[in-house]
C-alpha cells in the first residue's frame, strides 16, 4: 500500500512542475497558434541563468528564479518581436516556417550555451536538496514539495491574470480571434510579444524549480519540449486549467508506469496516454470541461 502512496506522491509533485513548464507552452500555442519547439531550449537557458546566479553570487535558486524569469521574459519578447513576428505577419510559402524557425532558435540557444559552458553536467546543491520528510513509510522530497507549491501559486496567479485583468482579457481575446481583436483596437503585436515573454518566463520558472533536485546540460531542452508538447495536447491548447490537469496526469501516469510496469517504459506510458487522448478526445481535457 505504501508503494502506491509513494508512487502517487512522486508523480503528483513532479506533474505540478511539468505543468508549469507546459503552461508557458500552452499560452504561446493557444494565443499565437505557433508550435514553439524552442520552448525546451528556453527552459534550459532559464536554468543556466539560475545556475549562474547561484554559483557567482550565491543566490538561492528560488530567488534566482525571479531574475531568470525577468531575463527570459525579455529574451522571449525579443525573439517574438524580431524573429517570429516577421513570419507570422507575412504570408509565407510554407506554413511550417514557424516550426523551422523555432527549431533553428532552439539549436542556436543550445549551441551558444554549449560554447560558453561546454557540455559538462552541472548541478546546484543547496542545504535542502536532499531533505525529505517521512509520512508514515512514504518519503516526500522537500525541494519537490516547495517546487510544487510555487508552481501551483504561479498557475493560480496566471489564471487570475488572464481572467481578471485588462491585459489578460486582451490576451484571451487575441487567442480567440486575432482579426476581431485587431478590429476592436487591440495592439496585437504588443499582446503577442507579452504573451511570448510570459510563456518564456514560466518556462524559466519551471526549469529553476527543478534545478535543486535535477541537473543541467545544454541538451536538456529536448526533454522539456517533448513533455510540454504532450501536456499541451493533453490539456487542450490555450487552457491553464487544462495544462495543469495535463501535467498532473502525465506525472502520475509516468510514475504508475514506472512502478507497476517498468521504468524502462516510463516514456512509453506518457506517449500512449498522449495517443489515446488524440484518438478519443482530440480537444484535450479542456473539451471535457466544456461539455
Amino acid at each position: 500500500m505504501h508503494l502506491l502512496g509513494q508512487t502517487l506522491i512522486s508523480g503528483f509533485l513532479l506533474g505540478g512542475m511539468y505543468a508549469l513548464i507546459a503552461i508557458g507552452m500552452t499560452l504561446i500555442m493557444g494565443v499565437m497558434k505557433i508550435v514553439n519547439l524552442a520552448h525546451g531550449a528556453l527552459v534550459m537557458v532559464g536554468m543556466y541563468v539560475t545556475y549562474i546566479c547561484f554559483v557567482l553570487w550565491h543566490i538561492n535558486p528560488y530567488a534566482g528564479m525571479f531574475i531568470s524569469m525577468l531575463l527570459l521574459f525579455v529574451l522571449g519578447s525579443l525573439i517574438q518581436r524580431y524573429m517570429i513576428n516577421r513570419l507570422v505577419e507575412v504570408d509565407s510559402i510554407l506554413p511550417e516556417n514557424q516550426v523551422l524557425l523555432t527549431v533553428g532558435i532552439s539549436l542556436v540557444l543550445t549551441e551558444v550555451i554549449r560554447f560558453i559552458f561546454k557540455s559538462d553536467y552541472l548541478s546546484v546543491s543547496t542545504g535542502f536538496s536532499g531533505k525529505t520528510v517521512f509520512l508514515g513509510k512514504m518519503s516526500v522530497s522537500v525541494p519537490m514539495t516547495i517546487g510544487f507549491v510555487i508552481a501551483m501559486v504561479f498557475t493560480y496567479l496566471l489564471h487570475l491574470f488572464l481572467n481578471r485583468t485588462d491585459l489578460g482579457m486582451t490576451i484571451r481575446a487575441t487567442a480567440q480571434d486575432r482579426d476581431a481583436a485587431v478590429y476592436m483596437g487591440v495592439n496585437v503585436s504588443r499582446v503577442t510579444m507579452i504573451t511570448f515573454g510570459l510563456g518564456s518566463a514560466f518556462a524559466a520558472a519551471g526549469g529553476s524549480l527543478l534545478l535543486p533536485m535535477f541537473y543541467l546540460w545544454p541538451d536538456i531542452g529536448h526533454l522539456f519540449t517533448a513533455k510540454a508538447f504532450i501536456i499541451t495536447i493533453l490539456g487542450g491548447m490555450g487552457s491553464t486549467a487544462g495544462a495543469l490537469l495535463g501535467g498532473l496526469t502525465l506525472g502520475i501516469a509516468e510514475s504508475l508506469g514506472a512502478t507497476y510496469i517498468s521504468m524502462g517504459y516510463k516514456d512509453v506510458v506518457g506517449l500512449v496516454v498522449f495517443l489515446l487522448v488524440l484518438l478519443f478526445m482530440p480537444g484535450g481535457i479542456k473539451s471535457l470541461v466544456k461539455r
Binding site: Q6, S10, G11, L14, L210, A258, T259, M263, G264, K266
Partner: peptide
Amino acid sequence: DQSYESGAIDFKPMLANMGK
C-alpha cells in the same frame, strides 16, 4: 531486475519497488 530510461528526474517509484 528492471531497466530504466536514461535522463529520468524521479527514480523513486523504481527504487521504492526495489526496496520492497
